[in-house]
Write a protein that binds this DNA or RNA. Structure first.
Lengths: 136, 136
DNA sequence: TTGTAAATGATAGTTATTCTCATTTAGGAG
DNA sequence: CTCCTAAATGAGAATAACTATCATTTACAA
């Protein structure tokens, strides 16, 4: 009774986004899902990413190195973007106050749908590499 | 004694970014600075924006409607991005805890250079317009 | 079988951004 | 003043992420 409609590829994309913690770009999604379903195309990936975002099934983390990154975890949380290796990492120990939504409405009359806190810098590994460079 | 080197256009770009509160895109910067200096080119705008960002003279707010937005105010603060009219607005009443920098280092070993909190939604005007649509 | 509506694949098109390179500019050395 | 150098710039080509187009395929129902 699975697959009411022709959702095999669509479901594979969303499943992958919900499983991974890499906050992949469209190209990374394509490369991974292609392993399971070799005859998938980039058009399908981009199309479904747009659909998921409109539905609120995924969120956009932001543009890293010229490419948008996506997250299947829609619960508000903080991201770290490494400027060295372009990883996007979750920071579960750092909380993001959700009162910004009510503040946006009460202070400014705005309708807040989504908030995004990103911290940019160097991850632990790139920090170590950088230190090595500085010694030389 | 002004203009040690050939910095007339460079300075005009940075001055504009520091004056305005529109968080302009490269194209918006070009359009404005062109009023003062008609023979400026887009290449100069892009080149100097990249230079300013490397130096830390400006920050990137994020990509809005396919275009990066820039801010001459480098003090960490919160931005609102209107999904209707694509305005980027400051939200001075909402604070951004700077302890995320020390938390990033202490909890994860990351080197944090910059943090960016954006709230997405509809500004007051677009909220009003949307309500009008819903009535009809 | 036939009809349908949505999903997809292949590919062309768009556009923000970057790259290349010749030219211009400002200042210093002689 | 002239020559030299190094950086800034302008014009346009090149890049690449993303979107649009359109014919085809798929799943389901009548």
């Amino acid at each position: 009774m699975a697959n009411e409609k022709n959702y095999k590829k669509r479901d594979a994309i969303l499943s992958y986004l919900r499983q991974t913690h890499t906050h992949p770009s469209a190209e990374m999604v394509y490369g991974e899902v292609k392993n399971q379903i070799p005859d998938i195309s980039m058009a399908t990936v981009y199309r479904n990413l747009a659909t998921f975002r409109q539905r609120g099934d995924i969120v956009c983390v932001g543009t890293v190195n010229g490419m948008e990154r996506y997250d299947g975890n829609t619960h508000p949380h903080v991201h770290f973007i490494c400027e060295g290796c372009h990883q996007v990492l979750d920071m579960p120990g750092i909380s993001l106050s959700e009162q910004v939504y009510t503040q946006a409405r009460d202070l400014y009359g705005y309708t807040a749908n989504y908030c995004n806190l990103t911290i940019n810098g160097l991850c632990d590994q790139c920090t170590a590499n950088k230190k090595g460079e500085n010694i030389a």
